Simulated scan of single mutants.
Amino acid sequence: MRRKIALAFTTTTLMVGTVMAPAAFASTTAAQAYTCHYSVSGGKAYAGFYSGNTAIPSSNVVTTAGIEAQCLLRRAKFDPGVIDGVFGSKSQAATKKFQTLMNNAFGYNIAIDGVVGSETWPALRWYAEYNA
């Protein structure tokens, strides 16, 4: 009888542990951090993840445009937070500061919306090259 109880207890413990472990692991896992690999071409900076000027980084999924924009913001000395490819509130705030600087100091007319789109990409690539 003891053996059956012990076996049942062990099986239950293993099953609960298996079910509970992934949830606990997921809640303690840090965001993936990417490493930026900068290069320069034609007076513009690139970080090795996205080379275009039209993709808009997503605020809820990892994108190569998100990683690229975060890397360039960091190189330009605007802190986007963790380079994780998800363009969250810290990355958007850094982008708004960058857009404000470009409008005020260099005469750009970029919407100050925290979005790295077709108006912001060229300015960000240029500024990240010359102000690293």
Rank of each mutant, 00 (worst) to 15 (best):
Y38S: 05
Y38G: 06
Y38V: 04
Y38L: 04
Y38H: 11
Y38I: 05
Y38Q: 10
Y38W: 11
S39T: 15
S39I: 11
V40E: 13
V40K: 10
V40I: 14
V40Q: 12
S41Y: 15
S41A: 11
G43L: 13
K44I: 14
K44T: 15
K44N: 15
A45R: 13
A45L: 12
Y46R: 14
Y46M: 14
A47V: 15
G48E: 15
G48A: 13
F49H: 15
F49W: 15
Y50I: 14
Y50V: 12
Y50N: 12
S51M: 13
S51F: 14
S51A: 15
T54S: 13
T54C: 02
T54M: 03
A55N: 07
A55Y: 11
A55M: 09
I56P: 00
I56D: 00
P57A: 00
P57M: 00
P57D: 02
S58V: 00
S58R: 00
S59Y: 04
S59N: 05
N60H: 03
N60T: 12
V61Y: 02
V62T: 06
T63M: 01
T64P: 01
T64C: 01
T64R: 04
T64N: 11
A65L: 05
G66C: 03
I67H: 03
I67P: 00
I67W: 08
E68I: 09
E68C: 07
E68G: 09
A69I: 04
A69Q: 07
Q70P: 07
Q70S: 08
Q70K: 10
L72K: 06
L72M: 09
L73K: 11
R74C: 02
R74F: 06
R74S: 12
R74H: 10
A76G: 09
A76N: 07
K77E: 11
K77I: 03
F78T: 03
F78Q: 09
F78N: 08
P80R: 02
P80M: 02
G81I: 00
V82Q: 07
I83V: 14
D84E: 07
D84F: 04
D84V: 02
G85L: 05
V86M: 03
V86A: 00
V86Y: 01
F87E: 02
F87Y: 15
F87V: 00
F87A: 02
G88S: 02
S89A: 14
S91D: 07
S91G: 12
S91H: 07
Q92R: 13
Q92M: 13
Q92V: 11
Q92Y: 08
A93Q: 13
A93D: 14
A93C: 06
A94F: 04
A94Y: 12
A94L: 03
A94M: 06
A94C: 08
A94I: 01
T95N: 03
K96T: 13
K96A: 07
K97D: 14
K97G: 07
F98H: 10
Q99H: 10
T100P: 06
T100E: 12
T100M: 04
L101F: 06
L101A: 12
M102L: 10
N103G: 09
N103L: 09
N104D: 14
N104M: 06
A105N: 10
A105Q: 11
F106V: 05
F106P: 03
F106Y: 14
G107L: 06
G107S: 05
N109I: 05
N109Q: 08
N109D: 11
N109L: 06
I110R: 00
I110E: 03
